[in-house]
């Protein structure tokens, strides 16, 4: 497959390799080295690293600055951008800022509602939604124009991604929703954390039935549980998360000190099984505040070493 951007992630996918991405949350302060340390640790085990954009609406060091830090250390960043906090002027402006540092990947999201974070009394913007942000980046890149119609002097060259949650309700529109994102111009997808493998496989089958797996690169999202408590929390408290009882029971069934190990095991087994699912083109390993575990997950899943592509 031919590539449209200088993105290394795109090249790896286009070459037919299973891609591996991960993500790092920026610090709640101005210590830039927090992000570079995390990246240093995992960089040889992944092809690109997402930097979250004020995830769960908790104010943090901005994604753009953190991505620039990764770029400067030679790591391929994926700029996460939510439409919650910026209008179309700010979004386009940040996209150009990112392009000026040769950031080549963007993940277009709407973002969690601010009620979940540290500023529930703040305004939200939502001038665009995630699908319209996909359209915006594609328009800026492919037409070389701002939304307002003026020409961009050196348009951004970004590989455009989005999230997909196969588990949120209503299930029947989860594949049509993927189709909408593809129609808007999305090129890669990182899914919500997968614990219910049957449901994910059904979603993938429905996507394949429409040929969608050939129109977009789908990276399956996985997150290891650190403890049975975390599994229960994700099951009961995190909106749009589907954690089957047997997974929770498996975590609770081992002694507390063995639970982290069990969590990694479940994660690796999931990857092994998902590798066989037609249409899965890679993995997005989200080890939340547990980034050091990305190494063993990638290694044990047979995804190491990473392909060398320039």
């Amino acid at each position: 497959m031919s590539t449209k951007t200088p993105s290394r992630l795109e090249k790896i996918l286009a070459a037919g390799h299973m891609a591996v991405t991960s993500e790092c949350g920026p610090p709640r302060g101005s210590k830039g080295e927090v992000i570079t340390k995390k990246a240093e640790m995992i960089k040889d085990y992944v092809d690109a690293i997402n930097i979250t954009d004020n995830q769960t609406s908790v104010t943090r060091l901005c994604s753009l600055a953190a991505c620039i830090r990764l770029k400067l250390m030679g790591v391929e960043p994926i700029l996460q951008m939510v439409t919650r906090d910026r209008n179309r002027i700010a979004l386009q402006s940040d996209i150009l800022g990112a392009a000026s540092f040769d950031l080549y990947n963007i993940l277009c999201l709407s973002g969690d509602h601010q009620q979940f974070g540290d500023s529930p009394q703040g305004q939200n913007v939502f001038d665009l939604d995630s699908i319209q942000l996909i359209q915006t980046v594609r328009y800026m890149r492919d037409e070389g124009k701002f939304l307002g119609g003026d020409d961009i002097d050196q348009p951004p060259k970004m590989f455009v991604g989005a999230a997909a949650n196969p588990f949120a309700d209503p299930f029947e529109i989860r594949v049509p929703r993927l189709a909408k994102k593809i129609a808007a111009g999305v090129e890669f997808i990182q899914t919500q954390c997968i614990y219910n493998l049957e449901k994910f496989e059904l979603w993938m089958k429905m996507a394949r039935d429409r040929g969608l797996h050939e129109k977009v690169y789908i990276l399956a999202g996985v997150t290891p549980f650190k403890s049975a408590g975390m599994a229960k929390y994700m099951k009961n408290r995190v909106p749009g998360m589907d954690v089957p009882d047997e997974v929770v029971n498996r975590m609770s069934g081992v002694p507390k000190e063995k639970q982290p190990e069990e969590g990694i095991k479940i994660c690796v087994e999931s990857i092994q099984r998902l590798k066989e699912v037609e249409g899965v083109k890679g993995f997005h390993v989200m080890a939340i505040e547990w980034e050091e575990k990305v190494l063993e997950i990638v290694e044990q899943s047979g995804l190491y070493p990473r392909p060398k592509i320039e």
Partner: peptide, 17 residues
């Protein structure tokens, strides 16, 4: 989130996140 192309990933059993 006044999403014009929703729902978001937080829609659960017909209710808002």
């Amino acid at each position: 989130k006044r999403l014009l192309n929703g729902p978001c990933g937080g829609s659960t059993k017909g209710k808002c996140e």
